[in-house]
Write a protein that binds this DNA or RNA. Structure first.
Length: 271
DNA sequence: CGTGTGCCCTGACAGC
DNA sequence: TGCTGTCAGGGCACAC
């Protein structure tokens, strides 16, 4: 499910019921996802109070009052189910507070759960390698200009590289390139300055719009099996093979493969 | 170094 | 009603 907006929405949804609560019970239903669960995860979380939740790139963080933070990644198919009515065979980690139950469900198991000292999060290799947050002050045309300099790789694949910008995935890269009218096959190093100046707000706008959509669904988040997904109706190109370009330029949305994944774009307006 | 490929895993859907 | 093939929001290990 998750790119940055979905993780942000998930973290906000979890925070509503988990922030400040004491974790009374922790159940692990298997030993690993992408990686083994931390060996001391259950012991550290059981009885701990949650002091806050946050997000970095596509990672969600649960901060505990024991100088440690639990870091989760939802991979391709991960989601948190709040107060599920029935268990799911892919609920791998389950947390219980006095009032609520939280199940980390991930059928494909591409996700991960790690635990780190809260004051050393920035040193964690996975975090240290990340580029700037796209919604923070670090994402500027100048940053992209420098990060993309000399790149022969396509701009599509460059934007999926979490070292260049942190948190974009396949959907929102397609959407941002469409908004900025940049051809996905254009070499990263050859994207012009005017294009970069369009790309930065395009990235911000598409992420912020999606977070707003997610936020509007938070109202029902506590519903049994409440689930946050993508808002496909709001996509302009993703998955729209053969449809008319929503810019109204007479172009048609094409689908190509890049790096083994699909890209959708309009050849008429994206150059 | 930068770049390209394949794999991890389950489930949904199309076509026969 | 099966089967089979393809594809899916991510990231990493490896080969060149």
């Amino acid at each position: 499910m998750p790119e940055l907006p979905e993780v942000e929405t998930t973290v906000r949804g979890l925070a509503r019921f988990l922030d400040g609560a004491r974790i009374e019970r922790v159940v692990l239903n298997r030993a690993d996802l992408r990686r083994p669960f931390p060996p001391d995860l259950v012991q550290m979380m059981t009885g701990a109070r949650v002091t806050g939740l946050s997000r970095r790139a596509k990672y969600g963080l649960i901060h505990l009052d024991r100088q440690h933070s639990v870091v989760f990644h939802l991979g391709m198919s991960g989601r948190w189910r709040i107060d599920p009515e029935t268990p799911d065979r892919h609920d791998h980690l389950v947390l219980e507070t006095a009032d609520h139950c939280f199940a980390l469900c991930d059928p494909r198991r591409f996700g991960s759960v790690d635990m780190l000292a809260s004051d050393a999060l920035d040193d964690w290799p996975q975090f240290a390698a990340l580029g700037p947050e796209p919604l923070g002050p670090g994402l500027t045309p100048a940053h992209l200009k420098a990060a993309l300099a000399g790149k022969t790789q396509s701009i599509k694949l460059c934007l999926l590289d979490q070292r260049i910008v942190a948190g974009l995935g396949n959907i929102y890269v397609c959407e941002a390139l469409w908004r900025a009218r940049i051809h996905p096959r254009k070499a990263g190093g050859k994207v012009t300055k005017p294009q970069l100046e369009r790309l930065v707000p395009a990235i911000r706008d598409v992420l912020e719009a999606s977070i707003r959509d997610g936020g509007s669904s938070l109202r029902d988040y506590a519903a049994p099996d409440g689930e946050l997904g993508y808002f496909a109706s709001s996509f302009d190109v993703y998955g729209r093979t053969g449809e008319a370009c929503r810019r109204g330029d007479g172009g048609t949305v094409s689908r190509i493969a890049q790096g083994g994944r699909s890209t959708w774009y309009c050849a008429k307006c994206q150059r």
